[in-house]
């Protein structure tokens, strides 16, 4: 197995006409890492991925694979495997032919190609489908063919563009586990583009959260959750209550108070710093989620559900308690 490589992105700027798609991106991805680009649609994550693959050209900045600047290399010389969102399986070729394609382009001997096609297909568990056409496979199988096709060339890094978006909810869970297991086995530096925080959180080592062409924060899923660097990250990963001074709580000027719903608890209204009427109540299974109106804002409070426990009704005035160590002040 090839040595896992690092990806270094420095000062990348990219615009299409007057649209500034990527703004001064700096990023360092470690060898063997499964790294996610996470963000809402239009944040530039796919463009950044395509930049690494060579399908987009930056106006400024550099992309280094294993310390080598790849700017001058066309896509077909980069050895960067990419799995497309649509899978882009060629309908006029069989599964085996699809997987063999990149090997044939590398002019490998026939026997070597056959061996590696079989190996790649076995790796994704599709050995018996080699002679089928892509149209005869299910969505999940197609996705695995796309992965097999990419890893067959033994790329330096693996890029996955929303690989789960075309699968149904149940499939997504099992496929993402498979992907993670495969990536671990190959020890391949991989980038995973997604807009779904759960996908990123569950399988990725580290995540870059992107918004409007910039990277807002890089970290492990837990770091991002526990210590979001800004309001965007805080609200994009999980639910967050964001309050300012207008809610009647002490917040330094220019900052906002941020906390997670499960860190707050309901308390008697008397003597609480925050109190207000219950606006709605949702039963989520393990927890009960209350909406509470505090000043001009509405916050969420999750309380553990225990059989027989007393519930608050909509309209009742409640207090909200929050341990100080759970209070996070972030710049507005």
């Amino acid at each position: 197995m090839a040595k896992a490589v690092a990806i270094e992105i420095e000062g990348v700027d990219l615009s299409y006409g007057s649209t500034h798609v990527l703004k001064n991106i700096d990023l360092s991805i470690r060898p063997g890492e499964l790294f996610a680009f996470l963000g809402p649609s239009g944040c530039g994550k796919t463009t950044l991925l395509r930049l690494i693959a060579g399908f987009a050209q930056a106006q400024r900045g550099s992309v280094k694979l294993d310390g080598q600047d790849v700017a001058a290399l066309p896509p077909w010389k980069r050895d960067v495997g990419m799995v497309f969102q649509s899978y882009a399986l060629w309908p006029h070729m069989t599964v085996a032919k699809n997987v063999a394609f990149g090997l044939e382009e590398r002019r490998l001997p026939k026997a070597e190609i056959d061996r590696r096609v079989a190996q790649a297909l076995d790796l994704v568990g599709l050995g018996q489908y080699a002679q089928r056409r892509p149209a005869q496979l299910s969505g999940g199988q197609q996705q695995r063919v796309a992965v097999a096709r990419t890893i067959a060339i033994e790329p330096k890094v693996l890029l996955l563009d929303e690989p789960l978006s075309n699968l149904d909810a149940k499939m997504r869970v099992s496929v993402r586990r498979d992907l993670r297991a495969l990536q671990q086995r190959l020890g391949l530096t991989s980038i995973f583009v997604t807009h779904d925080q759960e996908e990123a959180n569950t399988i990725c080592d580290r995540i870059a959260v992107m918004e409007a062409g910039t990277i807002r924060q890089v970290g492990t899923p837990m770091e991002l959750y526990e210590k979001p660097a800004n309001l965007f990250v805080a609200s994009f990963l999980g639910s967050a209550n964001i309050l300012d001074a207008s809610a009647g709580v002490p917040v330094p000027p220019g900052q906002k108070l941020v906390f997670r719903p499960q860190h707050a608890s309901l308390a008697p209204a008397e003597g609480a710093t925050m109190s207000g009427p219950v606006t709605h109540r949702e039963f989520l299974g393990a927890t009960v989620r209350y909406g509470v109106k505090i000043g001009g804002s509405e916050i969420l409070v999750d309380t553990p559900f225990q059989s027989g426990a007393e519930l608050r009704d909509v309209g009742a005035t409640v207090g909200v308690a929050l341990p100080p160590q759970r209070m996070l002040y972030l710049p507005a």
Binding site: A53, G54, F55, P74, P75, W76, K77, R78, D79, V80, G81, M82, F84, Q85, S86, A88, L89, W90, F101, G102, E105, R106, R149, T150, I153
Partner: peptide, 14 residues
């Protein structure tokens, strides 16, 4: 679709 050609480029074809 564009990705049809890009996938091939990505795998070393041009």
């Amino acid at each position: 679709d564009r990705s049809m050609e890009e996938a091939a480029q990505n795998l070393g074809s041009q």
